[in-house]
């Protein structure tokens, strides 16, 4: 089956996959390599905590810290997806769809098979694959 895909669709698919799959470093608080979506999740957790318990202690600091990380990485990954899409399109416009699917599949399989994440935010599994990192 040949998958045809427009450039914008391919770019969005790669970006979303990168948000969920690509481990990015957390630069302070705790050494970690986790997906950007995981940082968005932590941002949400802190935000809900502030709503429920109030902005005590380092809650606001953590909110800004996680939100900042998440937004910066989302932007970087957007640019990266754009660059990759351009490269693939230049190589062969017809192969854009299959190449995108192949890349996402490869990333998915790698993230599932290997413990590529280092996540001290997890309760039990510091080194985790994709199936554990969001558990």
């Amino acid at each position: 089956m040949i998958v045809s895909m427009r450039r914008k669709t391919a770019q969005r698919a790669l970006w979303v996959a990168a948000l969920f799959l690509v481990p990015v470093p957390v630069l302070a608080f705790a050494e970690a390599f986790i997906p950007t979506m995981r940082i968005f999740e932590l941002t949400l957790v802190v935000l809900i905590t502030i709503v429920v318990e109030g902005a005590h202690g380092v809650a606001l600091l953590l909110l800004g810290f996680f939100a900042g990380h998440a937004l910066v990485y989302a932007a970087i990954l957007w640019l990266a997806a754009r660059v990759v899409t351009s490269l693939l399109e230049r190589l062969s416009p017809a192969a854009l769809g299959p190449a995108t699917v192949a890349l996402v599949t490869l990333g998915l399989l790698t993230a599932i098979a290997l413990p590529i994440y280092d996540t001290p935010f997890h309760a039990r599994l510091p080194h985790a694959g994709l199936l554990e990192v969001y558990r």
Binding site: V45, H56, G57, L62
Partner: peptide, 18 residues
């Protein structure tokens, strides 16, 4: 939060008591 994300829970709770 404390059970699921112990490190985050620790930071949120401990800093509140500090």
């Amino acid at each position: 939060v404390f059970r699921r994300w112990p490190l985050l829970g620790y930071a949120l709770i401990n800093s509140r008591y500090g």
